[in-house]
Amino acid sequence: MIPAAFEYYRPTDLSGVIAILQEHGDDARVMAGGHSLIPMMKLRMAEVPHLIDMQDVAGLTGITIGDTITIGAMTTQAEIIDHAGLAEAAPIMREAALQIADPQVRYMGTVGGNVANGDPGNDMPGLMQCLDAEFTLVGPDGERSVKARDFYEAAYMTDREDEEVLTAVSFAKPAGGYAYEKQKRKIGDYATAAAAVQLVKDGGTCASASIAMTNLSDTPIYSDAAGAALTGTSVDADAVKAAVAAMLGDIDPVEDNRGPVAFKRHVAGVILARAIERAWSRA
């Protein structure tokens, strides 16, 4: 558990970061909270000759609340949990962040690191897809936006170029009921299955529904079909069943120490049904 030798950089502005990335290409990696990258380096599964610590880079923290909510990439999970305005405007953020690891990890772990690393076990990517968030990426050629739903390609593979830095996430202030439901073996574990649900109730009918699942494929899974199965219904037992069936068509879990595929698919269905039920009760 001793990493190979590496150069450590601690730039103070984004242009400094990008300059190092341009110089070293994929030999350089940026580090936010470090909770994914450092263990990989210690196991020597990630070779990072040039490590860029983002802690001192100005302008990457903070939460802005309006019709659009913007969260700087270096904002920690703890800051998300403690932010009263965010808890009011997008309570699903707090509900999800409270289910990430433990307080020590949440003091260091950041939103940007969580979404940019591309780890299918992370909770924020699925949540961002549920909220239809956009990620801001800054590179040598300037700034661009990518939808969370288009960002993830495979485990640890994303749309981000080697020389780009993810600087913020933003999403429209969500409406309606919400739930982030997660089953895990213990505190600190990745999800056996997790579901992010945001839905809007109009009278007795579901006007819109957005559903994304965590750790049930090599990327987060936004299930358009599952949301569609609820839309226009009264979210009765049949509708929930249809949404679960649709979701099960989209996920592709693999066996690991959490259990075999049949178990994971069953639990994914149970978790999603519970998330829908809770979100609907809050809508």
């Binding site: 089953q183 073996r185 056996t192 959490r258 259990g259 075999p260 178990f263 069953h266 639990v267």
Partner: peptide, 15 residues
């Protein structure tokens, strides 16, 4: 653990 308990329930026909 969770999956083994689930398996027990499953084998007993409780699902």
């Amino acid at each position: 653990d969770h999956w083994r308990i689930w398996k027990t329930a499953n084998e007993l026909g409780l699902h």
